[in-house]
Design a binder for these strands. Structure first.
Lengths: 202, 202, 202, 202
DNA sequence: TATGAATGAGCATTCATTCAT
DNA sequence: CATGAATGAATGCTCATTCAT
């Protein structure tokens, strides 16, 4: 009684997901160059040969991982770039969402940092995705802050500079989280972070 | 008439410095695993064989680089941990010093991030230096913030949490700088950052 | 239909044996330091990379080879150390066995000589095996000669000195054989060698 | 007051001798391939660069060492090949001389063994010297034994076979000595060895 | 002469990738 | 699909040898 095509597809999808999960963990811990395909295969519980049924190369696997991350993160920018609520509410919601993401998947950001650090080694499509996401984040944040400044909700100053600062803060917190996996310190609350930009705090 | 020992020492010092400079640049761009000794040698303008007159292995070179960085950074903590001025002045001075350091040597922080990210691969002495520096930073900042809170200069809250947040912010900014070497955006000014912790800002 | 584990085991055993045979020949001809892994691989008819599926390093391969030799040689001491026959018969049987071994596998002894000569370079487990074998040989021979002396079969004298002399003779013959592979001279017969120790010969 | 040419020559000779002595010790312990010129230089107390004023290459040094040994050993064959005394006396004198040599310079024979073992790696002049010495030894011993047999002093049998056996015995003893440098066992006395060939012993 | 910095050929070893089974 | 044996390009590292000083 052979497996049905649907079974095969399901198995295939599960395997692919297992490999990606294993790869994320291995890559974040060792980096692209030091990570071995056999590490990934062992972590995913299959032979290293089989990995090549799912990914054409180590680089392709890495790129797949990162591009999925960027795609999801781009979607999640909607909460900031959309038109639900006031600028302050949107920034708050975005910050909350990011903090939760960092708590839920602390490894994720380590991967992104690596990509930034060693971007000479990235395939061009991944580099493009990374740059696209960075640009989208900056422009959405800058626009939202500028909107808020017009309403007097945020402190004065170049909105791009404020945006860069706020994003850098989030990245710093993500990094702290990513880097301290064993004994994670609680992330600061939103109110603290928003002091950076909200006018009239005391 | 052979070279004098002093001549040899001078040559050695120059070579060693040239290798370290080349190594910093190569390591920060590629990471330990992907960096080739021949890259470093080429960047330093000498043969790969000669590198091994100065460093016993690639790992030793990397460790030497990082340990020097940590040693210097530990010394620079003095401005925060010392007793020159009020807690607020000390924090301000520390933040200014860090921002200047990030501007002057943007590569530096990339190296440190890598070390954190891939600390499984670090030799134990380097790991110890890193952990020591991280602990010293946190304790000095926590103590200074607690002092300032007692004087009413800083916002309420767990001083360790505030310290972690402030350091994370600095790291986020350093990362932004380190990662964006070609077209560096100006770093935020001190005043903006201090809004995070200073009470009564408007 | 993948290979069965049994198939793989068979392949592995065959390969491992082929590599060891090639290694014996290369090591005996060049010595550990001068032998290249690529020599061994070429002699075994496979790629150099594959050698490392079977042996973790050149030193491990050398050690494996020697330890197998010592293990077998230790077993073969039984004919001398056992209680089959008179002391003279046991010594005779042992000498015959050694001479036959030297004829059948002249390379073998070259390896052992190398190990003795360069024992500073041996891994400690191999050195222990070597020393163990040497000590066992001496004690078995000494005891057997002492027994024979009590029966009046052997010449007078310190049995340990006689044992050392007899073993040295065998080693000298083995060496002559090992060293003269192309045009081997016939080994002396047992009777000649036994003249060294048997009393009352004429 | 510059050194006179004679002083220079003396210094040069001393240096050369010091290098050879160091080389003998290093080569015998590690073998040609594993011995480093810097080991020899360090053992001789001079810089590795200077070694090349005295020897054009590592191989030349090794060859020089061995050829000197063979030259001296060839001269020492005179006691066997000459016409002083009866064949038995000459053989006895030769054996005594060899045993004394092995005691006085146990390292020497280790070098010769290496040369035999790895003779594929020898320069041709050294190989020729080695083969020449081996041939001379065999022919002198064979002739002397044949002479003695005619006088009834030695046992019957092919004199070449007897010669090979006797020389092998000596080599075996030399090896035992060479290999056991730390705790040398006394060499067997001449009488024991001569039992191999002398007729009518009891 | 004497030194040791410098070079580069050579070799051990690793690991991504392929492919027979 | 699955396995792991097999290959070989790539790279760390060593060390004989050269040569400027």
């Amino acid at each position: 009684m052979p497996r049905t095509p649907a079974d095969n597809q399901r198995i295939k999808d599960e395997r692919r997901a297992a490999i990606l999960a294993a790869a994320r963990s291995v890559f974040v811990r060792k980096g692209l160059a030091a990570a071995k395909i056999s590490d990934v295969a062992a972590a995913a519980g299959l032979s290293h040969g089989l990995v090549y049924h799912y990914f054409s190369s180590k680089e392709a696997m890495y790129a797949g991982l990162l591009e999925a991350l960027f795609a999801r993160a781009t979607v999640e920018l909607e909460v900031l770039a959309g038109d639900e609520g006031t600028p302050l509410e949107r920034v708050r919601a975005f910050v909350v969402q990011r903090l939760e993401r960092f708590s839920a998947e602390p490894e994720m950001f380590g991967l992104v940092m690596q990509a930034f650090l060693h971007r000479d080694a990235l395939p061009s499509s991944t580099l493009a995705a990374l740059q696209n996401f960075a640009a989208l984040s900056m422009s959405a944040m800058t626009k939202t802050l500028a909107d808020g400044q017009r309403r007097g909700d945020f402190v004065e100053g170049d909105p791009a500079e404020l945006a860069a600062a706020l994003l850098a803060v989030l990245h710093g917190l993500a990094m702290a989280r990513s880097v301290d996996l064993e004994l994670p310190r609680p992330l600061p609350n939103v109110a603290l972070i928003l002091r950076l930009i909200v006018s009239g705090v005391s």
